[in-house]
Design a protein around this nucleic acid. Structure first.
Lengths: 221, 221
DNA sequence: CGGGCCCTTGATATGAGTCAAGGGTGGTGG
DNA sequence: CCACCACCCTTGACTCATATCAAGGGCCCG
């Protein structure tokens, strides 16, 4: 991964995206371009026929984009900036050349694609088996990242997408997402800010993610 | 793809699996082995804690297995033969060497992984947005493959997995799957055999897959 | 021929969706 | 700088699809 980062340091040009701009649109020429997100958040979605959009994924800094379109001519989805973003553009052709020269870069790239497959399989598994509350809590824990060193000090995690986007991504409705978040807040597990949240009891959330039921509105912890 | 097939022709050893055998188990050493299914059907699943198993995927002849574990030490899932199978074993290391020598083989491999990512994204999108009937019909259409040349001649498609497996894969219950299949049969869209089915009205199924509602038990076509 | 397992089917329960109204927040224009 | 407006978020009541529970039947295997 380090090598890959270095790779795109040298090979890629950089673009700035303002909130609301598109990195690419579904159906556009892919041109063998991959993207590496340096900062900011994007959503990947397919504009569905009836105006509704199907959210495929949200990116975080350090993610790659466009890896589902290697060897394909046209983009399968659109990428929309939820915040201002810095994105590196990397030609797949350049990576391929690098892979010819550097012996291990090919392994790194394959491993990256492989991890992406695994990530998608995990997401699908969650959609198959988990209920609304479980999905939402898992989503929050993913966004919050790994537990901080000092257990008392929980960090503020950004949540730059709309409830509609979240619900679409999780296969739910905005109403259900809102209700569940409110419940979590009422119980004191999390607190909600404008465009972010804070985990206040990671153990409780992990219990919920593991399948524990969520009481509707009791005060107890 | 042709090149990849050729590749594993020369590089891989072949194994025979009898129905019920495992190709590999979750947690086993991956050893950088990939698999190419020549014939037969397998299911990929994760043995969940409570004995229930989470179906990740079903393979068909021509599919690759283990591509989610490149660069990982241990398997993330188990592969179980639903029928007798012929599987080619390919060392990732050998593929990597091939990629160093043959200029385009690297592109083919990347494209294969990329398609796999896309496949998983599509599966997740279906789980997010489609109801029970839609999921089942899409599943059947996938299994049936592309429409045959002679529209009248619909072929018999195998369905070697149990209802439990299907329902788990689609995020439903065996009861719902059974009910829906019965409805489809009653309406004359499909016919069901022991371990397979026949599409009798592909247009009707495609309407359903596109979102048309399924009447409960009318006789009309 | 007998037994177990899976599939089918019915009745009922429940989680999530739908519809709808009210409130907060951010953005825009005066 | 303030006020208005639009959009999104929240919350409630109700509906509906799908899960659950349970019983009966058929197929395959021993």
């Amino acid at each position: 991964m380090t090598a890959l980062e270095l790779a795109q340091c040298q090979l890629g040009s950089q673009i700035q995206l303002a909130r609301g701009e598109h990195l690419f649109q579904m159906g556009a020429e892919a041109d063998g371009e991959l993207y590496f997100v340096r900062s900011g958040h994007l959503k990947i979605y397919q504009p569905c026929d009836d105006g509704v959009q199907r959210i495929i994924d949200f990116t975080r800094p350090g993610d790659w984009l466009g890896v589902d379109t290697i060897g394909e001519q046209y983009r399968h989805a659109s990428a929309h900036a939820l915040t201002d973003c810095q994105v590196d553009v990397v030609q797949y052709r350049h990576l391929a050349e690098l892979m010819d020269e550097e012996p291990y870069s090919c392994d790194l790239f394959s491993a990256m694609l492989s991890r992406e497959i695994d990530r998608q399989q995990l997401a699908a598994a969650i959609l198959r088996s988990a209920g609304a509350c479980q999905r939402i809590v898992m989503f929050l824990l993913q966004r919050a990242g790994p537990a901080p060193q000092a257990p008392m000090l929980e960090t503020h995690a950004p949540l730059p997408m709309s409830r509609q986007d979240i619900s679409d991504y999780l296969g739910l409705t905005p109403a259900t997402v809102s209700r569940t978040l409110s419940s979590l807040k009422r119980n004191g597990w999390i607190s909600l800010g404008q465009r972010g949240f804070v985990v206040q009891s990671r153990p409780a959330l992990e219990r919920l993610a593991a399948g524990a039921p969520l009481a509707i509105a009791p005060q107890a912890a």
